[in-house]
Amino acid sequence: MGLLGQPTQEKIVLALALVLCLGFALLLPGFWTASNLLNLVRSVSILGILGVAMALVVIGRGIDLSLVATMAVAVAWSLQLAESGMPMAQALAFGLGFCLLIGLLNGFLIAYVEIPAIFATLAMGTAVYGFGRYFLFSLDIVYMPPDAHALTWVGQGTLFGVPAPIYMFALVSALAFLFLRYTRQGRYLRSVGDNLLAARITGVPTRPIILMQYMISSVIGFLAGCVTAASVASMNVRISNSTLIYDVILVVVLGGIGLSGGKGGIRNAIVGTLLIGVLLNGMTIMDIQYTVQNVIKGIILLTAIVIDTLLNPRDEQTAQQGDI
């Protein structure tokens, strides 16, 4: 333990992922091969990109439940526009603009109207999905125009044998890491998450920072949406109503980013994503039934949280009020 220092949730989750990896590698033929490992990372890279977006918001003591809906609707709209003849780049620019607008609205409602983030974004998710279904397109599934090769590469291409989504995941993670670490806005974001009132008193422009945080998450979400659409050549708007958003939150919190804000970094989101990826991949190889997979996944997640709590017990005296 001396070498590892204080066992944080991040380390526990990482250790758990490694143990699982080791177990699968020993027991499952075909798990520990380069192609499977690449496939493993590729299969969770979209989840990982969304996790990075969510991590930024959660570090700023927010939560963005509209992330999936925004990404689905914006990308589906872009595809719809492209299908009706608009150049792909222009269509994507419209989609991006839509995302920025939704992020701005989220931030405004949270920072200025002071609606709790969980409700503002929950309502925004519902409203965005409804808006898309009602005004932008009539079918839930929008297919990608066949001639959009450049975009298709983002989801299906490879470079040096590594699938493109992994590059996207790595790129987004790296940018987010640098942003949090080296830019003034990134540090402000963390200070806002750590203690909003203190940040405001010391002169941090807290409200603009909150606006920015939701706009960034929307934009990263749009990127994740592009990768999704490209990799399956279509966008199913119904994923806004799926439990994907729960998985995204799980990845973030599992990696050790507290919902009370200010804690953790991009690394934590990556670790959480990897654990989920290893689990899913191993269980698919074993051909475990889908429902049983969910039980196993849930129990392992629960184990990770329980171990963390046992090693770092939360005390009545130190716990933060309202930290659920």
Binding site: I249, L250, V295, I305, P313
Partner: peptide, 23 residues
């Protein structure tokens, strides 16, 4: 008793119980 975070814990039990229901 264990002082786990309510949001996360019940999110996970949501998934587990849902899977049990499916089974």
């Amino acid at each position: 008793y264990l002082r786990l975070r309510a949001f996360l814990t019940t999110l996970v039990t949501l998934i587990i119980v849902r899977a049990v229901v499916d089974m």
